[in-house]
Write a protein that binds this DNA or RNA. Structure first.
Lengths: 213, 213
DNA sequence: TTTCATACTAACCAGGTAGTCAGTTAAGTT
DNA sequence: AACTTAACTGACTACCTGGTTAGTATGAAA
């Protein structure tokens, strides 16, 4: 029976099962709105196991939160950027960021929720599981190469560049409910998505390529 | 006694007092995390009055939410834009939006919370108290004048333009906790604020001014 | 096959939380 | 001054919710 997909007595599988259900619950209802009983009901195991494996509700929340950043970074690093010039590489990164936010509303919502929580949990997390060093180094290399080639004429920090495109990719997902109501549109319609994706890329590349002042 | 600032038996004053305290509570803890008892304690009145005036917790939340958009729109409309060319006028609007978000974290958090709530409450609100018609019409006029003068070379909808600058202004406040941790910086430091404000304006104006394709 | 730690269950509990309600007070109205 | 109604109070309650615990099953080691 040990090859069974729902083997009992497999702590890792149990933990993983709980984490999956908890991600859905937390991202749907927030930290305060999430219900441990509802999570327990959604799993193959019982409430006691949540407390056995994760200590308390906050511990479970922390475990869920700590999973989402490495997941993003792993996908990010899978991108193949060989033989690309700086503009193409930057476009590829923005494309990826745009799609990742669009396709992972759970991620976006968890980040929102953690900010409502004043970032308390993330601040108490091991810095390495969270810091975005790789992407910043890559942006730095892109900017440097672009400047050396003369195609980028602006001086900007990798962090600011990161903020410029991420803010748009994040906002259109995080705020799609209120924005769709307030501006009278459907933010996430496929036509809007297509146009928006081109718009950010275009705006950023145009900005970087245009002469200072 | 009727001129007294804390006159008892003034329903409007009581409602206002409750709303002020509730805004703080909801924006700090979210809808699910807010506590009616804690709100009641913070007011000059009692919990019964909250239910008397607002029906239930959701009714109070709705009343708080319905106040924040008109407040924003009122400030927006106070801007003096006489004798400005399209670029100056757009810069003034972006400046205002940037500052409003920076100075009203409560507003930003309420919008986040309502999105975590899937926009349910806002959707059931009278459309006129929420729709941003004026600002869109103004952006439309700016774009048209800019194109007629030949200083704006891009064709873009007012809504997309609005999204481009608002997303950045919103995100740097809404996500400052996690971003500061993940990127290892202090997002809201005054030096970052100054630079960011110039950055959005610059990027948007550069984009609009540069030739299509 | 006995031992033992880990994994697990189901019933339980204390405190918290939204919401209620019977009764009181203040401010007009006639 | 009696009457009426809106504004208000404080004590109460039913239920929800996070967390506990006593006890059980499993599988690997010896």
């Amino acid at each position: 029976m040990s090859g069974d997909i729902t083997t009992s007595r497999d702590a890792d599988q149990t933990r993983q099962n709980i984490l999956e259900v908890a991600l859905k619950e937390f991202s749907e209802y927030g930290l305060a709105g999430a219900r441990v009983d509802r999570i327990a009901k959604g799993t193959r195991t019982t409430k006691g196991m949540i407390y056995y494996h994760f200590g308390d509700k906050d511990g479970l929340y922390k475990a869920v939160l700590e999973e989402i950043y490495p997941k993003l970074r792993n996908s990010e690093e899978k991108l193949d950027k060989s033989n690309l010039n700086p503009i193409e590489e930057l476009e590829k990164i923005i494309d990826f960021t745009f799609d990742y936010h669009k396709n992972n509303e759970n991620f976006v919502r968890m980040v929102m929720i953690e900010n409502i929580n004043n970032g308390k949990t993330l601040r108490n997390t091991d810095i390495d599981t969270v810091l975005s060093q790789n992407i910043l180094m890559e942006l730095n290399s892109i900017l440097k190469r672009g400047q050396d080639l003369g195609v980028f004429k602006r001086s900007i920090t990798p962090i600011d560049l990161h903020l410029l495109y991420t803010s748009f990719c994040f906002y259109r997902v995080s705020n799609h409910h209120t924005v769709s109501t307030v501006l009278g549109m459907n933010m996430l319609s496929s036509s809007n998505s297509t146009r928006h994706k081109n718009l950010v890329k275009n705006m950023i590349i145009t900005y970087l390529s245009s002469p200072e002042q």
